[in-house]
Amino acid sequence: MTRRDFLKNSALGVGGATAAMLGLQIVNPKELFAAVAEEKGKTRWAFLVDTYKCVGCGMCVKACKTENEIPWEANASRTWVERYVITKDGKRYADSPKAARDGFTNSKIDLGEGHEVEVKAEDIDKAFFVPKLCNQCEDPACVQACPVGATYQVPDGVVLIDRKWCIGCGYCIMACPYGVRFFNPVTHTAEKCTFCYHRISQGLMPACVDACAFGARKIGNLKDPEDPVTKIIKTERVGVLKSDFGTKPQVFYIGLDEEVK
């Protein structure tokens, strides 16, 4: 092969490959959503948790596990309920055994590694329950951390995961300040609460909201000023979890306590 032939063939090869590659297009999720979204910019999902109303029954966790097919016995859940107990002598306890799937049915507090402690009712200063779920942050640390773009934010604010593209590196799990993410034991990909996106995008309520008999969990659209949840968030005193991480969480709490981690 002469040098001339070599150059000629290389040019042909590179040119041909480039022409073929031009047919492929990398889809930018943002552009895609902009093209298909019917009500552009009219929705921003947010969640409202009224901790005063939560009784720790665990029905939300049961409903979530069933709805989202997270194995019943798996020690992880897209949503969970925490119990906080502060005693008169200043001791602070908190637990969420089995993500509170079975509810808090007795006064024994789980200390991990099989240990429990019994706290008498008369020794308690204050005690309360705090439901937790994905905060669908405005600036999600998990989306920033995903090396392949398998987790992404849709225009209405919810963060989703592409189970077919996730490589399972766990960086998003590390990046989330709220510990909402885990590896799905069946799909072996990252997993988290999506506000039941398959339901809310069809006009239904998330499974946990439907399951809560006490109205402790509510979902609303922040861009709709008439939405009752939006009204509460706008006009009442609500708090968010771990605001110092700068992720701008969108799950708002009524009755948040300093103790809540």
Partner: peptide
């Protein structure tokens, strides 16, 4: 074993640890 979360096997939890937290990066 399909219910075992990744990391659960080698993680021992003590006191208040969130339900989904495990030593994922091992």
């Amino acid at each position: 074993m399909e219910t075992l979360i990744h990391g659960e096997f080698w993680t021992l939890k003590e006191l208040f640890v969130l339900p989904n937290e495990y030593i994922v990066w091992s």
